[in-house]
Design a protein around this nucleic acid. Structure first.
Lengths: 138, 138
DNA sequence: GTCACTGCAAATGCTTTGCATCTAG
DNA sequence: CTAGATGCAAAGCATTTGCAGTGAC
């Protein structure tokens, strides 16, 4: 995700408007936990703007996803997480505490795709490891 | 997924009962498309037993997942798919027609995990490629 | 002044649950 | 006979949508 001011600029270039709500959402994504849910962001923005609506959060997150500034992660939890890091990388999910960590990209993911997907156009590859973190193994 | 009769046996061993509904669901999983949704299975079983309830489908699928006979896939579609193949393998999803293909497992997924997840107990690794199939590229 | 955004509430879509009835073992 | 299964309808959640009022530019 780019810095807040660049995001604001990108919004304007698309004919979208920069509102205080959106600025706060950008800041929450920049400063908060790394893989927040929409509700996480709602809570953290509410500390500054108590009346902001969850619908506004969803609206803005959808815009960011469409702009490619944020990745929507589906980690099998029945709700989406949003990742401000859009570089190629893998995820590691603790089935105990639901903590989500970033891992370096798999080097051969793309190679595998190349071998077995002749004729396809591969857009992206998602790799998620599920397990138990050191704390939760106990 | 094991043959229908073995599944029936496995149910009984767990104190669960073998009903005509469950048998039909097993057969639908065995014979039908490879990555069906709960609704897909409902439709195909309804051709033989029109009054079967969707709740029964979900109930049985949840049992099968718990028994490790079927994998629940979350491919970011807002609904689950169920995969009777529980061997280690990857998935290839067409963003156009939503077709889902199986791919061989990544050999180094586990290696990557071993290098970067000291102290963790890794349970499984899910790899999903998203793209456009030859038909949908046009 | 316009057109997009906001907040609210209602709607949506998938999945689960409560309950009365039924049935496998 | 009895515990578990079924079908129905209602409830639960996360997310989206419709709409009237508001605000960015």
């Amino acid at each position: 995700m780019r810095p807040v001011e660049e995001l604001c600029q990108a919004l304007r270039e698309r004919g979208l408007k920069v509102t205080p709500q959106r600025r706060l959402i950008f800041e929450a994504l920049r400063d908060g936990a790394e893989h927040p849910t929409a509700e996480n962001i709602h809570h953290s923005v509410q500390e500054i703007m108590p009346d902001i609506s969850l619908a506004t959060i969803y609206h803005t997150l959808n815009d960011l996803v469409e702009m490619g500034e944020v990745m929507e992660l589906d980690l099998g939890e029945g709700r989406s997480r949003y990742d401000p890091c859009t570089d190629d990388h893998c995820h590691l999910v603790c089935l105990g505490c639901r903590r989500v960590l970033d891992l370096p990209p798999t080097t051969d993911g793309i190679e595998l795709a190349a071998e077995n997907t002749v004729g396809w156009e591969i857009v992206r590859c998602e790799v998620v490891f599920y397990g138990y973190c050191p704390n939760c193994r106990a």
